[in-house]
Amino acid sequence: MALALASGAVSLSLLDVGQGLVDTVLGEAVNQNALIVGQIRLPRVLLATVMGATLAISGAAMQGLFRNPLADPSLIGVTAGASLGAALIIVTGGSLLQGYIGLSLVSAGAFVGGVIAVLFVYRLATSANGTSVATMLLAGIAITALSGSIGSLLEFFADNNMLRRISLWKMGGLDGANYPRLILASVVGGALLVALPRYAGALNALLLGESEARHLGIKVDRIKLALIIWVAVGVGTSVALVGTIAFVGLVVPHIVRMLAGPDHRYLMPASALAGALLLVVADALARVVVAPTELPVGVITTIVGVPFFISLLRNRHHYGMQ
């Protein structure tokens, strides 16, 4: 994290970073270094930490719930719904979208879109006999496709400027980091990091199968609903604040599971840590590779993660995955 604070378009020594932090904490942020560290990089690195942890732990919970190591928070429609919500605001917002308020409006649109999509998917999959996880996956795919095509329709009618905003937003980025956003992210992320590990035992039982979990005394339907709501809020917030960051929710839990086993009591905290680390590193890279310009962080997480993931997949039999 210290290294991530030090790297950027203006590179600072670790000593400068330390000095900048001290100045910020003491409220004497007057020199340039202190401003860079305290006002720009610190909230950004912390936001990356919180969002990386949120995405990864949500992914771990979804994979356990769906009993599918390839499940991802986007499977239940959060990401697509949020993208659509954001695109809708960008295209229809017009002159409202100037500056700070515009950014918050887009975020709010993304959050609302994500949560609506999940609620819709959940309603589709729930009948008198309970919630079918398989139906939910299919409904998630359908809603994702629907949101995607409505999104494309919006893009078709959008002008160049809007198109650029939409596609940049879709790639994800932490450049909007500031303290209000960090506080919101920390509240949601912190709640998620406290709440989700409490379901570790239930998720372990769910890996056996739903009726097996029920026979072990787990209130399966209640737990399913609770997990989906937590993940929708967590991922919805993250998409709203930093755009879609692919790959963290899918691959981090998978990698951790291969290295540490499927027990959710360890899997969830370890995924949160690894997700935070991946996003902080990816964001630091995004800032320095083509400095002074920045790459979208989602591109980096994918470029860094995929080769590692593929090498694990090739050796999967060592880890007991089929």
Partner: peptide, 10 residues
């Protein structure tokens, strides 16, 4: 049960 669905490497 007759069949087990467990496919995770416990």
């Amino acid at each position: 049960p007759q069949m087990s669905l467990l496919s995770f490497p416990y």
